[in-house]
Design a protein around this nucleic acid. Sequence first.
DNA 1: CGCTTAAAGCAAATTCTTTGTGTTAAGGTC
DNA 2: GACCTTAACACAAAGAATTTGCTTTAAGCG
Lengths: 179, 179
Amino acid sequence: MAIKEGLRPGGRSARVQESVHSAVRDLLEEQDRATVTVPQIAARAGVTPSTIYRRWGDLSVLLADVALARMRPESEPANTGSLRGDVRAWAEQYLDEMSSEPGRNILRDVQCSTTPALCATIIGGQLQTILDRYPDQPKPNVDRLINMVAAPTVFRILFSAAPLEVEELHRLIEIALSQ
Amino acid sequence: MAIKEGLRPGGRSARVQESVHSAVRDLLEEQDRATVTVPQIAARAGVTPSTIYRRWGDLSVLLADVALARMRPESEPANTGSLRGDVRAWAEQYLDEMSSEPGRNILRDVQCSTTPALCATIIGGQLQTILDRYPDQPKPNVDRLINMVAAPTVFRILFSAAPLEVEELHRLIEIALSQ
DNA sequence: CGCTTAAAGCAAATTCTTTGTGTTAAGGTC
DNA sequence: GACCTTAACACAAAGAATTTGCTTTAAGCG
């Protein structure tokens, strides 16, 4: 029991999880998200449907699990040498990734999960990393950046006809940094 | 064909719609949203499941339809006599309504619908009404208010562990109005 | 190496969704 | 107001997804 969670992360379990996640990612590329079913995923992953139901509960939880894994960034935010530059670079990339069709779906799926709060945590972590690079500079706290930069970006993608314009994004960043 | 949509809004159709909407609202109060099913709604509403499937397609669409109807405000934003007061009153009420359990679910359901863009339209309409009351005053445009007030409110509710604090909401409003 | 048990497989039972066909009642016409 | 046309609903059977009881496999431990 010297392992992370109270589960069995060893060989088979891990293989099944990876196989299922991979099947989900593949299917989401091939077809519309609304048409993906659990039996279909199971077949692709070489697993029994009941395995998926027993482990994840239902489709929305599985999709959220996969979406959260994809949301977790694989690299540090770009370091441009200035606070403004770093925030801009991060925000532009985030806007770009999430306003695509698959990006929107990731946001949707995460949001339907039981722990969508992790989303703000991940974003906050990224932004905090940037802020920590400039310790001797007057700057807003993470919360403010989340509220004024990340929030409108995500909100527009999910609830508006058109995503945030890059110009408006820049203006919001200026306002946030000047407070 | 002098009617709104290309449908038949007359007697029976309207009755069924109201009956189904009402059944959904009732069930959402009695039990967890994840446990509500179409056959259950149909039984409560006194209609056949196939009626619901034929008319709405599936559960998520129906829930979104009900959620959108609930989101549509029944009254004008409060008129306090000042721009700041009106925006504050609106934002506080919105934060309050949407951070409750049913409120969160409404946001989720709308967001999963095919026309979540209507959400920004409704919010924008409310805010525009407020702005129009003060024509001779320097003020931000609706977009800015949506981005700096509504967006963080909704984002926090959906993706963060805790909703926006009222103090931070007030600060964001100050910043938005001072630009 | 063998023991214990979490996690997967399998299959039957249940529940939900789809679909073909017949019936009801809006909305329009005379 | 009686008659037509057809959108919207009811019913029932077929199809698909989900749940559940039981069996088998293999991870982790002594």
